[in-house]
Design a protein around this nucleic acid. Structure first.
Lengths: 153, 153
DNA sequence: GAGCTTTATAAGGTATCCTGATAATTCGGA
DNA sequence: TCCGAATTATCAGGATACCTTATAAAGCTC
């Protein structure tokens, strides 16, 4: 009863998550743009987030890691290929498959992106407190653990 | 240096936020559907999240609270109106404006939605620990505070 | 009352996902 | 060894959730 009353005027969790994500993403893509990668958009994350930066990955792998359909990831892949971030090469071990690999430009974007994400997280820690951001991380990892575990290496 | 090494293999914050939001939203809309509101979609949140359930609100208010354009919120409003959740009535105090009000069906969806969100948050607390979810809430509120503060009552 | 602002809407476009269908290749068992 | 089933990628079309630009009507200020 008192719990309901307490919660009544606090913003719902789904809204907080939404705003926090939006905030982080906004800052990230602003900096990506400033770093010369203005054509990288959130939707490209399903590739950059799952690709093996050294050996490349197959479309099926990327789709599975991103929890998306192969068609969707394929579309994003074509877009990034068109923009010069990726290349598709035939898989020598499987005639059906292709290996999606970062070009040198793609590798650059990948590296810069990772660094910007780390930067942002560090800045959040400085701004809001190390402990608070560590707690945020821990909580998010706990809440998403079963999803992350279900993913392949 | 060691910090970079520690972070290296942990999932990036933006991904964690993405998955957590997706997880919460998925469960919420699943239950909304089970409760008979299967036609309520995430995009409708900009109205339900900002509307005054008693007296209704103007489009401009809803757009400002949702940080969206009036056109976008207007589109969502028309959709919800078509589905019987809302009605638009002329504002007696301003000939330009219309008041967007919940119908009885809309009020039902609103109430059920709020309860389901509270339910979910309570279940998360039971599953992952009261303290962890409280910490998650606190951290998210801290990180989003400046955005929430910028909003009107 | 003229000019600016505010309210809502119309029209059209972009981004990010989806489902269903298709073609090529590989694999596994009779 | 060959045939059917599974796997890989892709094509085509659609749904959703936003956006920008332009318009119309009403209010506000001087």
């Amino acid at each position: 009863m008192q719990d309901e009353f307490e919660n009544q005027m606090r913003p719902p969790m789904v809204r907080l998550l939404n705003i926090a994500l939006d905030e982080f993403a906004e800052q990230l893509y602003e900096r990506m743009s400033a770093a010369g990668f203005g054509d990288i958009r959130p939707g490209h994350g399903c590739v950059f987030g799952g690709i093996d930066p050294d050996n490349g990955s197959r479309l099926t792998e990327l789709a599975e890691r991103a929890c998306m359909t192969k068609q969707s990831v394929g579309e994003v892949t074509s877009d990034l290929e068109k923009r010069g971030y990726l290349e598709r090469i035939a898989d020598p071990d499987d005639g059906r498959a292709k290996i999606i690999r970062l070009t040198s430009h793609g590798r650059e974007a990948y590296t810069v992106g990772r660094r910007l994400i780390d930067d942002l997280e560090r800045e959040w820690a400085e701004r809001y407190g190390e402990e608070l951001i560590a707690a945020l991380r821990d909580a998010l990892e706990a809440v998403t653990a079963h999803r992350l575990d279900a993913l392949p290496a």
